[in-house]
Design a protein around this nucleic acid. Structure first.
Lengths: 221, 221
DNA sequence: GACAATCGATAGTATTACTATTATATTTGT
DNA sequence: ACAAATATAATAGTAATACTATCGATTGTC
C-alpha cells in the first residue's frame, strides 16, 4: 500500500483519529459538515448523528470543537508541506519555487487517492473560511506552547528561507510570508464574498499573480 | 461643545446606542470587557451586570453579540477615516499620505477627549484580536448587503485611490490594501503572540516599516 | 479465558443566547 | 398640568450548546 502519513502533534487530539475506523469517519464527516455549515454551526452532536455514533464518541477523540478545527488546519498545512516538497524536486530557482508555493496555496487541488477519508478540496475551503479562528482566542499563548500552530509556522519558515536565497539582506522574511499566506486565504474569501476588497473577479489565477507580484517586488533590493 | 460624530449604519443596531446614556454605557463597558475577556467569553449578561442594568436592556440596543462587535469595528474604521482626513490636510504627496495611513493603522493612538465613552486604544486592541470574526461567518453575503463591512471597504477604497496616484497602471490596488490593512492587524497580533510569524520584536515601528516597504515596492513599475 | 481497549447508549449539568411580559419611571407634546 | 409615548428594570422562561459521568456490550489479544 502506498501510504502517506501526515503527522499531527499529539496535543491536538485525545485519541489519534488516524488510527481507528471511527476516528477516520469523524475526520471525514467533520470536514464535510464544517464545509457545509461553517464552524459556528457545527456541533459534535451533528457529527455524531452523521457517523452513526454518539456525542461522547466524538469527545473521546477531540476535547472540543476548537481542537478539532485546529487539528484539521494543521493537517492541511502538513499536507501542503508534503506537496511543496514534491513539487520543488524539479524546480531549481527559488523564484520558481515561491511561485509554485503560491499556486499550491491558492489553486484548487486534486483529491489524493491515498487518503480517501480526507477531502482536500473541502478542507481547503475550511481553511479559507476559518483559519484565523484557531489563533484569535485568549488561549493563544498556552496553545502556542503546546504546538497548536506549528504547521503554519513551518510553512512560513520554509518560504522565508527561499526568500533569503533571493535577497539575503531582506529584513522582513517572516512578516512577508505570514502576510502572503494569510492573503492567499483572505483574497480567496474576499473575491467570493466581498469583491470590493479584491481585484480578482473570482479567478484564482489573478490572486496568484497578485501574490507573486507582491512577493517578488518585496524581495527586490 | 466640540462634537465629533462617527455615523454607523442603522443596520448595525436595534436602537442607536449613541443617543442615550444607557447606550453609551453599553458601548463603554462592552469595549473594556471585550478587551479584557475576548469576544468568545463576553456575554450580554456580563455587560449588563457591569452597567447595572439587565440583559434585556442590552438586547434593546443590539440584536446579538456579533452585531455589537460589528458595530464597534465599524466605529473604529469610521474613526480612522476621520483621523486620516485630518492628517492628510498637511501632506502633499500620496507617498506621505500612505505612510501616515499605515502609521495610524499600527501605532497606538491617543484617547480622543471629545468622545469620552469610547476608549480608542482598547478598541484598537479589539480590532487586532477580533476583526476577521465579523466577516468569517456563513451570513457574510447577507450582512454584506446590509452594509456590515462598509467601514473596511471605504478605507481600502481611499488607500487604493492614493496608490493609483503613485502608479496609475498598478493592477491590484484593492487586493493590495485589503492585504496591507489586514497585515497591519495580524502583524501586531503575531508580534505579541506568535513571534515566529513576524520580524518585529514587539516594536510597532518595525511593523510600520515592513508595511510601507511592501506597499511602495509593490507600486513600483 | 482474562484483559484491556473500544464503543454505544443514556443521563445529567451549567451556561448561553435569546424571547416575553409587566410594572415603573421619564420625557414630551399640547 | 396631563395624557401619551418612550425608556428602562425586573423577572421568568426556553431551546440549544458544550460538555461530564456512568454503564454495559463487543472485540481483539496475550
Amino acid at each position: 500500500m502506498n501510504a502517506l502519513n501526515i503527522t499531527i502533534s499529539a496535543k491536538l487530539y485525545s485519541k489519534n483519529p488516524d488510527e481507528t475506523e471511527l476516528g477516520k469517519r469523524i475526520l471525514s464527516k467533520s470536514i464535510s459538515l464544517m464545509d457545509e455549515l461553517g464552524y459556528e454551526q457545527l456541533t459534535f452532536k451533528k457529527v455524531a448523528r452523521e457517523i452513526i455514533s454518539t456525542e461522547s464518541g466524538v469527545y473521546r477523540y477531540f476535547q472540543n470543537k476548537h481542537q478539532l478545527l485546529t487539528y484539521l488546519i494543521n493537517w492541511y498545512w502538513g499536507w501542503l508541506e508534503v506537496k511543496m516538497a514534491q513539487e520543488f524536486i524539479l524546480l531549481n530557482s527559488p523564484e520558481e519555487k515561491l511561485k509554485k508555493a503560491v499556486e499550491l496555496l491558492v489553486l484548487p487541488m486534486e483529491q489524493d487517492e491515498r487518503i480517501p477519508h480526507i477531502d482536500e478540496r473541502a478542507l481547503q475551503r475550511i481553511v479559507v473560511a476559518e483559519y484565523p479562528k484557531i489563533y484569535l482566542t485568549k488561549d493563544v499563548d498556552q496553545e502556542n506552547k503546546e504546538g497548536y500552530f506549528l504547521g503554519y509556522k513551518r510553512i512560513c519558515e520554509t518560504l522565508s528561507q527561499l526568500a533569503l536565497q533571493i535577497n539575503p539582506t531582506y529584513p522582513y522574511p517572516h512578516s512577508l510570508f505570514a502576510t502572503i499566506v494569510e492573503a492567499a486565504q483572505s483574497q480567496q474569501f474576499f473575491a467570493e464574498h466581498l469583491p470590493r476588497l479584491s481585484d480578482s473577479s473570482g479567478g484564482k489565477h489573478e490572486i496568484v499573480q497578485f501574490l507573486i507580484d507582491m512577493t517578488l517586488k518585496a524581495l527586490r533590493k
